[in-house]
């Protein structure tokens, strides 16, 4: 009864690959941004790459949604998969929104140790994205493995959470104006939001599996 399933899987996974590439490009943006001797031209090029990849991910999201709609999956499954693809796309959107933030607040200068922690957040998030991609692949093949990967995504989010709290505590001790603190806080929170968005993807997968548990 199920038609076009291989197309559905391919498009969902292609979409995830583009979101993963967007995150990797964004990681490069962050690296450049956190450098003492930031190269503005290179940063600009990387920022453009993030925008381009996010745009490609949007296009692929449409194609994936289209293939889901025209497949012969059960209506409930279609709705769940469209929600999943939408949440995955939200991850790329979060990364793109920080690029805009970087563009607006190019002068943000974090101290050395905080820069390390910010870079670490992004390294973990990229790792989390790889786990999320495997999780979605397993969702189509094996619920147990998908569930294990979802737990991995959740655990990585907890690590990011810990780093975020440490950064905010550090920020509290800074001797800068409230307005400046707010801008720095906003940046830290936005960065950690990408990990939260990936946790949301894991939650959708966990829900899909949970309602199919006997």
């Amino acid at each position: 009864m199920i038609g076009g399933i291989s197309t559905v899987v391919k498009r969902i996974m292609d979409h995830m690959s583009l979101v993963e590439k967007t995150l990797e490009a964004f990681n490069e943006v962050l690296r450049q941004y956190l450098k003492e001797d930031m190269d503005i031209d290179e940063l600009g090029g990387l920022m453009k790459l993030v925008h381009d990849l996010e745009g490609q991910a949007d296009d692929m999201q449409e194609e994936a949604t289209e293939s889901i709609m025209h497949s012969r999956l059960l209506p409930e499954t279609k709705v769940e998969l469209m929600r999943l693809v939408d949440r995955v796309d939200g991850v790329a959107n979060k990364a793109e929104s920080i690029v805009d933030h970087v563009f607006l607040f190019a002068h943000l200068k974090f101290p050395e140790d905080m820069r390390g922690q910010l870079a670490q957040i992004m390294e973990i998030t990229v790792k989390q994205m790889k786990s999320a991609k495997e999780m979605v692949k397993f969702l189509f093949e094996d619920f147990k493995k998908a569930k294990a990967k979802a737990e991995e995504v959740d655990d990585l989010e907890s690590e990011v959470d810990g780093l975020e709290r440490a950064l905010i505590a550090e920020l509290r001790r800074w001797d800068v104006s409230i307005a400046e603190k707010y801008v720095y806080l906003n940046f830290i929170e936005k960065l950690a939001d990408i990990s939260d968005a990936l946790e949301d993807v894991a939650s959708v997968v966990e829900q899909i599996i949970a309602i199919r548990q006997i």
């Binding site: 199920i2 399933i5 999956l73 059960l74 969702l139 189509f140 998908a146 199919r212």
Partner: peptide, 11 residues
């Protein structure tokens, strides 16, 4: 065996 297996089974 995953989501599509389940879909087929229910159908």
């Amino acid at each position: 065996r995953g989501l599509f297996w389940w879909d087929n089974f229910i159908f």
